[in-house]
Simulated scan of single mutants.
Amino acid sequence: MLVDSHCHLDFPDFADDRDGVIARAGNAGVGLMVTICTKVSRFPEILAIAEAHENVYCSVGIHPHEAGSEPEVSAQQLVDLARHPKVVGIGETGLDYFYEHSPREAQARSFRAHIAAARESGLPLIVHTRDADTDTNAILAEEMGQGAFPGVIHCFSSSRQLAEEAVALGFYISASGIMTFKKADELRDAFAAVPPERLLVETDAPYLAPVPKRGKTNEPAFVAHTAARLAELHGMSPEAMAGITTANFLRLFSKVPPAAIAVPQDAPPAGPAA
């Protein structure tokens, strides 16, 4: 049984077939999905998707791309929204210096507010970072000194050094389809060095479909391909990696009851979808 720890089921790509996407995930052995909030202004729609599907949970937060355009929220506002039983994470948040759709100062303020909310709520911080390794690690390390909080670097595509620094802070590292790409040898080397007990898998759907689904709209059912490639790197079977990453997910996203991850009666064993 697998978990897609990060997808975006509210995005327009899924509007016409969201129920089908969720059903295909279950039939591919993906027992649970977390649909991630990128705009607090859209949180009601995201929460509605989670409420409508037993095997879907959600987060609350503001993506760094939106930090300059979304209404600025306080840590307490995030904590209050996260009290709903279907909300299991804070974010996604972080720093993106590749696109810089928002001013760096706004990104950093938003990032710290989300960290404070994760610290207060105990829910995991879901971190997006791109071309911002130094500042991401500096903020995480500084804030960790103010009080511990759990978290994950999602869709990890950075250096082995950042992976090691994040793990040292107690973070998890999540593999997306990028890790399966032909030219991602350095990234695979970074993932090979991450302790198995700190690994998660995700799709970031509808983006970044893994090999052999590249070029298609990504969906949660495809997370099995990423998990299988990750298993190869660590010299284990796909079934073993599925078990490890699901156990890791439940440890980090501790608000999710273990009983929420159920195997559909007609579902095959966890493995790449055809």
Rank of each mutant, 00 (worst) to 15 (best):
L2M: 14
S5R: 00
H6P: 07
H8S: 05
I36C: 04
E45V: 00
A48H: 00
V56M: 09
I62A: 04
S74R: 01
Q76T: 14
Q77K: 08
H84M: 06
P85E: 05
V87N: 03
I90R: 08
G94R: 04
F111N: 10
R119G: 11
R130A: 05
N137Q: 14
E143Q: 15
M144E: 07
G145H: 09
G147D: 10
P150S: 13
V152C: 12
R160G: 15
E164S: 12
S174Y: 01
K183P: 02
E186P: 03
A190R: 06
A193G: 08
P196V: 15
R198I: 09
L200V: 11
L200M: 13
A205Y: 10
Y207C: 08
L208C: 04
P212V: 02
A221N: 09
F222T: 04
A224Y: 04
H225S: 14
H225P: 04
A228D: 07
L230G: 12
E232S: 08
E232K: 13
A240K: 14
M241Q: 01
I244P: 00
T245L: 08
T246K: 13
F249H: 04
R251M: 10
V256T: 04
A259E: 15
A260P: 07
P264R: 14
D266P: 09
D266R: 11
